[in-house]
Design a protein around this nucleic acid. Structure first.
Lengths: 199, 199
DNA sequence: CTATAACACTAACAACCGTTAGTAAATTCA
DNA sequence: TGAATTTACTAACGGTTGTTAGTGTTATAG
C-alpha cells in the first residue's frame, strides 16, 4: 500500500513524464504544437510513440501542463507582490523584472504558453483565458493605483499592461538570434524603457 | 493575344486567388497555419479542396504571399521615411504610428507574418528572416542616430527596436478582446508610452 | 457560333495523424 | 526468489493530410 510513487524516477532528469514534457516543450517551440507529431516527440525522448501513453494521457495534456504551470507561476508571484507594502511603481518594476528574467531563463515554456494556448481543448481553453484576463486586470489595477497616487503618468492602464507584456515577450527574438547582448543588458535596457515609460 | 488577364475576376472581390488568400488569412489566424486544412479553407471559399489548386500552387504558397506582402509594405514604407528630412525621433514616431495603424486595421495578415513564418519552406524562410533582420537593423540605425544627436536617451538600440515592435504586436490582444478602448486611444496611448520611452 | 481557355468536380493516392490493444521485457517490492 | 507493477514494443485502427489525375462544365474570345 502507501503507493510510495513506485519507481518512475528516470535517473537524473526526474520523472519520465517530466522528461517527455521537457522534450515536448522544445519540439512545440520549434515546430508549433499542431505541426509537432507524437512520433516526432517519441524520437526525441528515445522511445516509440505508443510508449509515451504510459506516462501521459494525450498530446493536449502535455500542452495543458506547460500552459498552466507557467500561468500558476506568474499568478502566485503576482499575489506575493500584491501583498507586499511597496509603491505601485516599485511593484511594477518587480513584476516587469520577474517577467523579463523568466523570459530570459525559461522562455521555451513561456513562449508556448503565450502562443499555443489556442490548441488547448475546452474547458481548459476558457479556463486559461480567464486566468490570463484576470492576471492582466490585476496588473492594470496596480497601474491605476500608481496613476492616482501620482507616481505614474496619465496613461490607459489596459494599454500599458498590453504594451509591457508584449514588449517582454519579444525577448523570444533575442533567444533566436546570435545574442550580441548579454542577459543583464537585456534586462536593464528593457526595464529602463518600460519603467520609464510609466513615469 | 495580349492575354488581357482573361476573366478571372470574381465579381466584387477581385481575383479568385485573392479571395482564397483573404479567406486563408482569417483561417490561419484562427487555427494556425499547420492546423488549418485545405478542405477547411475550401469550405470557406465555397468550393472543393481540389479546385483551389486551379488558382494556387500549394498551401505554403498562400503563406508566402501573406508574409512577403506584409514584409514588402513595411520595407517600402521604411525607405520612404528614411529618405525624408526628419529628425530621428520624428522618424521613429512616424514608423511607430505606421506599425500601430497597420496592426489596428489589417492585423490578420500581420499577425500571420509575425507568428507563422516558421512554416515557410526554404528558401523563403531564410529570405524572410533576412529581410526581417535587415529591417530591424535599419530601425536600430535610426535610434542610434537619435542617441548620438542627443534626441534620445542612452539605450541599446537593438533592445529598443525589439521592445517597440513586440509591444505593437500586442495589439493582437486588443483585437481578440471586447475592445473597451477605441482605436484612437489605443494609438495615442501606445505612442505616448513608446515614444516617451525613447526620450 | 465555335474554339479555347478557365474553372469546378469526383475519386483517389500515399503519407501521416493521435491513439489503442495486446504482449513481452524490465524493474521494484515483499 | 517470486509476485506485481511499470514500461516499452509491435501492429494496427480509423481518420485526416496535401495534392494529383482525369473529366466535365462554364465562360470568354475571335
Amino acid at each position: 500500500m502507501l503507493s510510495l510513487m513506485a519507481k518512475i524516477k528516470s535517473g537524473k532528469n526526474g520523472t519520465r513524464k517530466e522528461v517527455i514534457i521537457e522534450k515536448a516543450t522544445r519540439l512545440f517551440l520549434e515546430k508549433g504544437f499542431a505541426a509537432a507529431s507524437m512520433r516526432d516527440l517519441a524520437e526525441h525522448v528515445g522511445v516509440e510513440a505508443a510508449s509515451l501513453y504510459n506516462h501521459i494521457q494525450s498530446k493536449s495534456e502535455i500542452l495543458q501542463e506547460i500552459c498552466f504551470k507557467v500561468a500558476n507561476e506568474f499568478i502566485s508571484h503576482l499575489e506575493q507582490v500584491e501583498s507586499s507594502q511597496k509603491s505601485a511603481i516599485e511593484k511594477m518594476e518587480i513584476l516587469i523584472r520577474f517577467h523579463i528574467r523568466k523570459m530570459l531563463n525559461e522562455y521555451e515554456s513561456i513562449y508556448i504558453s503565450d502562443h499555443e494556448w489556442r490548441h488547448l481543448p475546452e474547458p481548459y481553453l476558457s479556463n486559461f483565458l480567464n486566468q490570463r484576463r484576470h492576471y492582466r486586470k490585476r496588473l492594470a489595477a496596480i497601474i491605476e493605483q500608481g496613476i492616482q497616487s501620482g507616481e505614474m503618468k496619465q496613461i490607459e492602464p489596459y494599454v500599458a499592461v498590453l504594451t509591457i507584456l508584449s514588449a517582454i515577450s519579444g525577448i523570444e527574438s533575442w533567444h533566436r538570434s546570435r545574442k550580441n547582448i548579454s542577459e543583464k543588458d537585456m534586462e536593464e535596457n528593457m526595464v529602463k524603457f518600460l519603467v520609464e515609460g510609466l513615469k
